[in-house]
């Protein structure tokens, strides 16, 4: 085993990690914003909003991210109005921006479904209690619905974020030299696919491991009520009959 080659490849691929993280971060950040909008539209009760979000989810969840990325990067530039638009063209001629746009649009479809499910799973009784105590719709949402829904959404959301980490590798097909692009270049130069792809794979694994750990920690912190009750060793006194 050529340890030096492994180490040098590892180092080269790692140098592309910041670029991968950049795509990842902006992809999920914009994705979250779009998903929030979609969820709101879906929950608002407007018929038109519901049709729009259904169609959106159908398209972006139903077709491969790779197709979406190609359509955005190669496809949209075919239209004159895109190339002459002072707003669209600076974004759509740049492969980096195109990747982020494709990822954000794609993940938003999945996330809006996750959020919709979480909102529906909030126990009706707890929302009713908030109503019965005179909370306004906004206070109800902020104090009861949202905190409970977020906790319910977290496990599925963390899976989606991990899927997005892996999806950043697709950026390599539109000329971006993130980790996968870099790995492919080394592979072409050296004809040693096993070593190179193993290095890339290991880095993705470690990256996702830390993301999964981070989410597990957040979930743990947010859900003390779902864990077993406090230990009896905390010296809980028996409940006295005061009345």
């Amino acid at each position: 085993m050529d340890l030096d080659f492994y180490l040098s490849t590892m180092w080269s691929v790692l140098k592309a990690l910041p670029l991968t993280l950049e795509i990842w971060f902006f992809g999920i950040a914009f994705g979250l914003i779009i998903a929030t909008g979609l969820t709101w539209l879906r929950a608002s009760g407007y018929r038109l909003g519901e049709y729009f979000t259904r169609a959106y989810v159908f398209i972006f969840r139903g077709s491969p991210l790779l197709v979406q990325l190609y359509l955005i990067y190669f496809g949209l530039s075919q239209f004159d109005f895109v190339r002459h638009s002072p707003i669209l063209w600076p974004i759509l001629r740049d492969p980096m921006y195109c990747t982020i746009v494709a990822m954000a649009l794609n993940t938003a479809a999945y996330e809006s479904e996750i959020f919709r499910g979480a909102l529906r799973a909030v126990p009706v009784g707890q929302i009713e209690a908030a109503k019965a105590f005179g909370m306004s719709a906004f206070t109800r949402f902020r104090l009861v619905t949202l905190p409970i829904a977020l906790r319910l959404a977290l496990p599925a959301y963390s899976t989606e974020i991990i899927l997005m980490t892996k999806a950043t590798a697709l950026a390599s097909v539109v000329t971006i030299m993130e980790m996968m692009g870099t790995a492919q270049k080394i592979q072409h130069d050296t004809f040693r696919p096993i070593e190179v792809l193993t290095c890339a794979g290991v880095i993705y694994l470690l990256l996702n491991l830390s993301i999964a750990r981070l989410f597990a920690w957040v979930e743990y912190r947010l859900s003390p009520h779902l864990r077993p009750p406090p230990e009896q060793s905390q010296q809980i006194k028996p409940v006295p009959e005061v009345l």
Partner: peptide
């Protein structure tokens, strides 16, 4: 008009 429910409906979080 404070209400007490059959299934308590305390806010679980």
């Amino acid at each position: 008009l404070a209400m007490v429910f059959q299934s308590f409906n305390l806010w679980s979080h």
